[in-house]
Nucleic acid binder design. Structure first.
Lengths: 108, 108
DNA sequence: CTTGATAAGTAGAATGGCTACATGTTGCCT
DNA sequence: AGGCAACATGTAGCCATTCTACTTATCAAG
């Protein structure tokens, strides 16, 4: 998959994986990897800054904990984040329709 | 639709509209607008540089003509462009599967 | 004779995902 | 005991591409 085809689509994806349970950064990476069937192997230099950005923007809230000597920062959706996720899903559907309207991907 | 969610997806879309008939820049803009149901209104500052980039990369070839006092540069797919378009369509399907695997967009 | 559509372009800003680097722990393998 | 893989978090700076804003020019309609 092309490098930064993700542009603009990553945020809702991150929000989606913490929708039903709060997760820490590393676990978010693993969840993305798993849900994408191994395709989405985010570098830490992408994920961690993105999480901070989303927190700054008010879509995520975080708290520190220490588990077995390891520090974890666990993120959960805020109510603004929930709304953002919903509208992100909607925007995805629009985007998909636009691309497929132009691309007509059935025709190889 | 978010501004540059297009990132990395625009190139195959441009190639797609000239797949069956050569078009000049302005006509490409109109074709994108029409095929996207009015959603994709590219600024000229996006399209023209993109066309030049695709030509430099060998995916498009262009020639000048003058129609009614207006200069047109008409673009058509090269054979490399045809291949690139095919692989772009394939990549789109992968990308879509990745996003939807993570997003599960059915659930509002 | 001005406005809107047609037509092509450039310069420079901004975005955000990437590479590469930095730091430290735990647990398994030899 | 030593080393490496997995766990865990983070920063600095690069880079590609899309965007805004601008320029130039013709033609048709009003």
């Amino acid at each position: 998959m092309k490098a930064d085809a993700l542009r603009g689509h990553l945020d809702p994806m991150i929000l989606a994986v913490v929708e039903h349970e709060p997760l820490h950064g590393y676990a978010i990476m693993e969840a993305l990897l798993e849900r994408s069937g191994g395709e989405l192997d985010l570098p830490t230099g992408t994920l961690y800054p993105a999480l901070r950005r989303l927190e700054r923007a008010g879509y995520l809230a975080s708290e520190w904990s220490t588990v077995g000597g390891r520090k974890r920062r666990t993120y959960q959706l805020t109510s603004a984040g929930t709304k953002m996720l919903a509208s992100g899903k909607q925007e995805w559907l629009t985007f998909r329709a636009v691309v497929e309207g132009v691309l007509r991907p059935g025709q190889a």
